[in-house]
């Protein structure tokens, strides 16, 4: 049996959030599937573990939508990999998703924070 990683507090990703994370990750340069997953995990300090069953469909869907490009290349460890890269359409989509995310978090924060002067 695998050992449980005690620090891993798994968080379910909100619908649509994965696209944002992928696009954001690819902002720093082309990357292959495993690299993207690792980067998201590292970036979230193990809080976000991307499920491969979500990652790859998302990658291929984004590719179909034209937000990212893909081609076969070679990794730094000389492994044949499928490398994804952000397109200009993807950059625009990233900007849009970022602002939407900000609106969402602001809104959620607003709901969660007790409004001033309404202490019961």
């Amino acid at each position: 049996m695998p050992k449980k990683d005690p620090t891993a507090t798994r968080i379910e990703l909100l619908q649509g959030t994965l696209d944002l994370l992928i696009l954001q990750t690819l902002r720093w340069g082309p990357r292959y599937g495993y690299g993207i997953a690792e980067m998201i995990r590292a970036g979230s300090r193990n809080a976000l573990q991307v499920d491969t069953g979500s990652l790859y469909p998302a990658l291929h869907r984004l590719e179909r939508q034209g937000a990212i490009d893909a081609e076969w290349g070679v990794s730094d460890k000389n492994q044949r990999v499928r490398v994804y890269r952000l397109t200009s359409a993807g950059r625009k989509q990233l900007a849009a998703e970022q602002s939407r995310w900000r609106q969402l978090t602001d809104a959620v924060a607003g709901v969660l924070a007790p409004p001033a002067g309404s202490e019961a």
Partner: peptide, 21 residues
Amino acid sequence: ANARREFGNVGVVSEVTREAT
């Protein structure tokens, strides 16, 4: 083994990925 466990069902993953293309 662990990598495979973490990965999930390869068949299902490839199936859903194919559906997304």
